[in-house]
Write a protein that binds this DNA or RNA. Sequence first.
DNA 1: TTTTCTGCAAATGCTTTGCATGGGA
DNA 2: TCCCATGCAAAGCATTTGCAGAAAA
Lengths: 146, 146
Amino acid sequence: MSDHIKRFKKIIQKLRENHHKITPQRLAIVKILAQSKGHPSVENIYGKIKQDFPTMSLATVYRNIVLIKSLGEVLELGFPDGSNRYDGNKPYPHPHLICIKCKKIVDPDLDSLDDMKNEVANETGFKILNHRLDFFGICSSCQEEK
Amino acid sequence: MSDHIKRFKKIIQKLRENHHKITPQRLAIVKILAQSKGHPSVENIYGKIKQDFPTMSLATVYRNIVLIKSLGEVLELGFPDGSNRYDGNKPYPHPHLICIKCKKIVDPDLDSLDDMKNEVANETGFKILNHRLDFFGICSSCQEEK
DNA sequence: TTTTCTGCAAATGCTTTGCATGGGA
DNA sequence: TCCCATGCAAAGCATTTGCAGAAAA
């Protein structure tokens, strides 16, 4: 079974467990989040669903994202300019690499972060619960263009 | 000469070099940014200045922060909930440790980040220009309280 | 004197919320 | 049937902007 189908089923199961109704709108939102290779924005999600479901409302997208976030099944990548992006595939904190030209977001492999977390915790006495690491740059396709 | 006086002079100099006028409002904002041990918010800055300068406007704080940012002399720590914070002491990217209870922000020592940047660049072909690393947790004073 | 800066208020843009209707279970 | 979920429109909130008067240089 492919990864995104597993994620889809997992999220739906989580919703059922918590006695939330499975509506067509919710189903459509979960489907997109579970695929979410490109870290979609709210507008992305809204736009895609609106094609086959013209009455879909933005408020419904927002409310469902809040809900799914509260179940721990989507990671919100918030940006101060309001261009938030969502990752329903890997809902746990992990580093991101963001192209400032085409806005593509990819997940690099990196595992030295845990050591860093422990180092910081020991040094400062903080109990560290969460983190966020973004690298900003220009992806290889955007470097080719002039 | 203390560090924050150096920063203050440096920012004022940068303003002069770029032919910006030195107004009392601007001076007050720079003074707070240059001290900025606690990574102040716009509201912090505005509130402090308003005490001796009652006509000070929020728009002026925002406009001056945009200006000083454009000169590269303040680091903006943007958060999606609009609780942005500013660091005029170390205007270059560096890791932050944020207490989710008291909202304190401290700068831990960490130097393994450059290796990580190179690793990611090599792995992905990105040209990395910038980064942002935040750890979220509970500081030692907040851990003591129940 | 000239040009930039400030203060005020209105505008923006994303997100949230109130309320009445609609639709899962 | 009984609530929860949805759609719509209005409200929120940090930030930006237009404009006329004030003040650096």
